[in-house]
Simulated scan of single mutants.
Amino acid sequence: MTRVAKRQFSVYLPPDLVRRVKHASVEADESLSSFVERVLEDYLRRSDPRSEEPS
């Protein structure tokens, strides 16, 4: 399996949102980084009109 290089970056979020995201990652049995990566990828895939399946 090929490893993808990762970069760290900081974001500022409300404390309640941070708590909820951390709990969601535990519920999903994923690391916080993996959870956030997956959620962001899913969101971007859904919001990109070029990624839609042809009808």
Rank of each mutant, 00 (worst) to 15 (best):
K22H: 14
A5T: 11
L17P: 06
Q8F: 05
L13T: 07
L13P: 00
E41A: 14
T2Y: 15
S33D: 01
E53D: 11
D48I: 07
R38L: 08
V21F: 03
E30N: 10
V11N: 06
Q8R: 11
R45I: 08
Y43R: 06
Y12A: 08
L17V: 12
P14S: 09
R19K: 14
D42A: 10
F9K: 04
V39Y: 05
L32A: 04
E53M: 12
L17A: 13
R46C: 03
P15F: 02
L32D: 02
Y43S: 03
R20I: 06
P49N: 02
F35W: 00
A24P: 00
F9H: 06
R45H: 14
P15Y: 09
R3I: 11
T2K: 15
Y43T: 03
R45A: 10
L44K: 13
R38P: 01
E52G: 03
A24N: 04
E27D: 09
D42H: 12
L32E: 04
E37G: 05
E37M: 12
R38E: 09
A5R: 13
D29L: 03
A28P: 00
S51W: 07
F35C: 00
H23G: 01
Y43P: 00
D42R: 09
F35E: 00
H23S: 02
D16Q: 08
M1S: 07
V26T: 13
V18L: 09
P15G: 05
Y43V: 04
E53V: 10
S25T: 05
F35R: 00
E27T: 07
D48Q: 12
A28W: 03
S33L: 01
Y43F: 12
S51K: 14
E37D: 12
E30R: 15
S31D: 09
Q8H: 05
